[in-house]
Simulated assay, not measured.
Amino acid sequence: MRQFYIFIKCELGKTYDVASALVDTLEETRQVHSVSGAFDLLAQFAVDSEADIGRFVNLKVQTISGVKDTQTIICFNAFTRDRGLGD
Rank of each mutant, 00 (worst) to 15 (best):
E27W: 00
A21P: 10
A51L: 05
S36F: 15
H33P: 00
A46Y: 03
R81C: 04
D69Q: 10
R30L: 14
I53D: 02
F76C: 10
F56A: 11
V18P: 12
I6R: 04
F45M: 10
A78L: 14
L12H: 13
F39C: 09
S49F: 14
Q71D: 04
I74K: 04
G13M: 05
V35S: 06
I74N: 07
T29S: 15
K60I: 00
I53M: 10
I8W: 03
F7G: 03
H33K: 14
K9W: 02
C10F: 07
R83F: 09
S36K: 10
I74Y: 02
V23F: 05
G13F: 10
T63I: 14
A51K: 13
I64S: 06
G86H: 11
L85R: 08
F7A: 09
Q31L: 11
R2I: 13
L59I: 04
S20H: 15
D17H: 14
T72D: 07
L59Q: 13
V67W: 06
G13Y: 08
V57D: 07
V32W: 05
V67I: 04
E50G: 03
F4I: 03
I73Y: 09
V47E: 00
G37I: 11
V32R: 08
T29G: 04
S36M: 15
T29F: 07
T80K: 14
G86S: 14
C75D: 04
T29H: 10
L42P: 03
F7R: 09
N58D: 13
V67L: 07
S36I: 12
V57Y: 06
K60M: 08
C10K: 00
S49W: 06
M1S: 10
E50W: 13
I74Q: 05
Y5G: 14
R83T: 09
D82V: 02
L22R: 05
G66P: 09
A21K: 14
T80I: 00
I6E: 03
A78T: 12
V23E: 10
Y16P: 00
K14I: 00
E50C: 08
V18Y: 05
K60L: 07
H33D: 10
R83A: 12
D52Q: 04
E11R: 11
F39P: 03
I64K: 05
I64H: 04
F4Y: 03
N58L: 14
F45R: 02
N77M: 07
G13R: 04
T63V: 15
V61I: 15
R55W: 03
R2F: 07
S49K: 11
R55E: 14
L85A: 09
D69I: 06
S49V: 08
L22F: 02
S49Q: 12
G37D: 03
R83P: 08
R83C: 09
A51Q: 04
S20L: 01
E11H: 13
T63G: 06
F4V: 00
D69A: 03
M1A: 12
A43P: 06
A46E: 15
K68R: 11
T63W: 11
F7T: 01
T70W: 10
L26E: 01
T15G: 02
F39T: 01
